[in-house]
C-alpha cells in the first residue's frame, strides 16, 4: 500500500507557504490521491503556473513543468496531446487559472482536453501582496481595493460547467476527505475535470478583511458550505454567500484526443 509520502520530495520541506495557508492541504491531497490510485510516477505529469500555489510542483516527485503566469492549462494541453497516455494535472491559483488564464480555462473545458485542473482559490494574489483577482468577492478589501472591491466575481465552477467541462467539483480546505474524493474522481474521468478548492490566505485576504486566524477562516468556509443536495432545496436568496460543495457536474464525453485519434485513424497514410 502506497502512502502520499511516496510521491513527495521531503528534502524540499518546510514548504514555502505562510503559516495557516491552505495550499499545503491541497498538496497533501494530490499526493494522497496518487497513492490511493497507485499510479506509476512516470505516468504523472503536473503543469503549474505562477503564483503561491504554482509552487506546488516543488514538492512532488513526479514529472513537473512549471510555466509562465496564466499559461499552465495551455502548456498542459500540449503535454496531454503530446503524450495521451499520461495523467496530466494542472495546478493553479485563482489569479493564474481564472484571471490572466481565464481564456485558456474556458477553451480547455470546451475542447475537453484530458487534464485534471485543480484551482486553489484564496480570493487574492498572495505572492504579490494580496491584490484582487477575478474571484475576489464584491465589497471585500484587498491591497488594490482599499475602499472595497466594486467588481462582481467569477464562480469558477459555474464557468467550467458552462464552458463544457466533463467533471466539476468544489470542496473547502476544511474538508480534505472531500478534496481527495473529487480529485480522485476527476483523474478517473477521461476529459476535462476541474476541482475548485476554497482556500484560506490568512496573511493577506484574511487580514485585510479581518477574518481572523487560519482556523477561523476554515471554520467560516465550512459554515458557508452547503451540499449539492441541500442547495437543491434552497432559494437563490438563501444561497447568497453560500459555497455549494460536492460533485457539481459529472457528464463525461469523449475528450479531444479520443476524437482526434479517429481522424488520424481515418486519414493515416504512414
Amino acid at each position: 500500500m502506497k502512502s502520499y509520502k511516496d510521491y513527495m520530495l521531503f528534502d524540499k520541506l518546510p514548504q514555502t507557504w505562510c503559516a495557516g495557508c491552505s495550499h499545503g492541504i491541497v498538496l497533501q491531497s494530490i499526493a494522497a490521491v496518487m497513492a490511493e490510485l497507485d499510479v506509476d510516477k512516470h505516468d504523472m505529469a503536473l503543469v503549474s503556473g505562477i503564483g503561491c500555489f504554482g509552487r506546488v510542483d516543488d514538492y512532488l516527485d513526479i514529472n513537473c513543468m512549471h510555466v509562465t503566469h496564466g499559461r499552465a492549462l495551455a502548456a498542459a494541453t500540449g503535454v496531454a496531446l503530446g503524450n495521451p497516455n499520461l495523467h496530466v494535472l494542472c495546478t493553479m491559483g485563482d489569479g493564474d487559472g481564472t484571471t490572466i488564464g481565464g481564456n485558456h480555462l474556458i477553451h480547455a473545458a470546451r475542447r475537453n482536453i484530458n487534464v485534471t485542473a485543480i484551482i486553489s482559490n484564496n480570493y487574492n494574489y498572495g505572492q504579490t501582496g494580496g491584490q484582487y483577482s477575478a474571484t475576489t468577492p464584491t465589497h471585500s478589501i484587498t491591497q488594490t481595493s482599499p475602499y472595497g472591491h466594486i467588481e462582481d466575481n467569477f464562480d469558477i465552477c459555474k464557468l467550467a460547467i458552462a464552458a463544457g467541462a466533463s467533471y466539476v467539483g468544489r470542496a473547502t480546505a476544511y474538508n480534505p476527505v472531500m478534496i481527495r474524493k473529487l480529485i480522485k474522481e476527476g483523474m478517473q474521468v477521461k476529459g476535462f475535470s476541474l476541482i475548485e478548492v476554497m482556500s484560506a490566505c490568512p496573511t493577506h485576504y484574511g487580514k485585510f478583511n479581518k477574518l481572523g486566524e487560519a482556523a477561523r477562516m476554515l471554520k467560516l468556509m465550512n459554515e458557508q458550505s452547503v451540499t449539492v443536495a441541500q442547495a437543491a432545496k434552497m432559494s437563490p436568496e438563501e444561497l447568497k454567500g453560500k459555497l455549494v460543495v460536492g460533485v457539481l457536474k459529472n457528464e463525461p464525453r469523449d475528450d479531444y484526443y479520443t476524437e482526434y485519434a479517429r481522424i488520424i485513424e481515418a486519414q493515416r497514410i504512414e
Binding site: 503543469v47 510555466v67 495551455a74
Partner: peptide, 19 residues
C-alpha cells in the same frame, strides 16, 4: 490544434515538446 490565441499556442508547443 487551433488554440485560442498565440500565447496559448506557444505554451502548447512547449508542453508538446516536453512530451
Amino acid at each position: 490544434i487551433q488554440m485560442e490565441d498565440e500565447l496559448s499556442s506557444m505554451a502548447a508547443l512547449c508542453g508538446a515538446s516536453l512530451a
